[in-house]
């Protein structure tokens, strides 16, 4: 139970975010502005998404290494 509590807390947190962000679609500001109207007209969105995913992957890997290291100490 205690071992499962850690990952479950993270899943609970993320799931909550997903519910709020997906749940409010198609509005970005409820009743005022749609997400489609708010999105940037700049090109290269795909690249910045790829960059963000890359950054988060590195951060997750680093966090896991750091946590394992601290747990071993």
């Amino acid at each position: 139970m205690v071992v499962a509590a850690g990952p479950l807390a993270a899943i609970g947190l993320e799931a909550g975010w997903v519910v709020t962000e997906v749940g409010r679609q198609p509005w970005i500001v409820q009743g005022v502005m749609r997400t489609r109207e708010a999105v940037t007209d700049a090109p290269g969105l795909g690249w910045s998404l790829a960059l963000s995913i890359g950054i988060y992957t590195v951060l997750i890997a680093g966090t896991l290494v750091a946590l394992r290291h601290l747990a071993r100490k």
Partner: peptide, 17 residues
């Protein structure tokens, strides 16, 4: 922003991990 994030990451990971 990437710089600010990785600066913190580098500092923390270097110090603790």
């Amino acid at each position: 922003l990437v710089g600010i994030v990785f600066r913190g990451v580098g500092f923390a990971f270097r110090s603790y991990a």
